[in-house]
Computed example of a mutant assay.
Amino acid sequence: MSHIVTVQEAVTAFADWMEPTDAELDAIEQEMPVIEADIDLLDAHIATLDRTPTELDARRLRRARRRALAARVELTNLSVPFSGVGA
């Protein structure tokens, strides 16, 4: 008979004393508009899973897609330094 044993590292990997660093929290805060836009897009998709999408549903999906794309573009523009034209 083989015994099942827990691996100590896996058990302590999520200990209470292990908190995110300030840099990690700042990164999460910076990505929050993208996360929220993706949640809205997912909500719009979920709302249309069990029925044929209406025109209102289609508008909601388009609006959510545009918002998600705009949030990603803004995050990308914040993280990529501007090099200037012809530089």
Rank of each mutant, 00 (worst) to 15 (best):
D26G: 09
D26V: 02
D26S: 14
D26N: 09
A27N: 05
A27V: 07
A27D: 10
A27R: 10
I28D: 06
I28S: 07
E29K: 13
Q30K: 14
Q30P: 02
E31K: 13
E31I: 10
E31R: 14
M32W: 12
M32Q: 14
M32S: 08
M32D: 09
M32G: 02
I35M: 07
E36V: 13
A37F: 03
A37K: 01
A37Y: 00
A37W: 01
D38Q: 12
I39G: 08
D40L: 03
L41F: 02
L41P: 02
D43E: 08
A44W: 02
A44Q: 01
H45Q: 14
H45V: 03
H45Y: 08
H45R: 15
I46F: 10
I46Q: 14
A47F: 00
A47H: 03
T48Q: 11
T48I: 14
R51C: 07
R51W: 05
T52H: 06
T52Y: 04
T52D: 12
P53V: 04
T54G: 11
T54C: 10
E55K: 00
E55F: 03
L56H: 10
D57K: 02
A58S: 11
R59P: 00
R60C: 01
R62G: 03
R62A: 11
R62Q: 12
R63L: 15
R63T: 13
R63K: 15
A64Q: 10
R65W: 01
R65S: 02
R65F: 01
R65M: 05
R65V: 02
R66Y: 05
R66T: 06
R67T: 15
R67Q: 14
R67S: 15
A68G: 06
L69H: 15
L69K: 14
L69N: 10
A70K: 08
A71R: 05
A71W: 04
A71F: 05
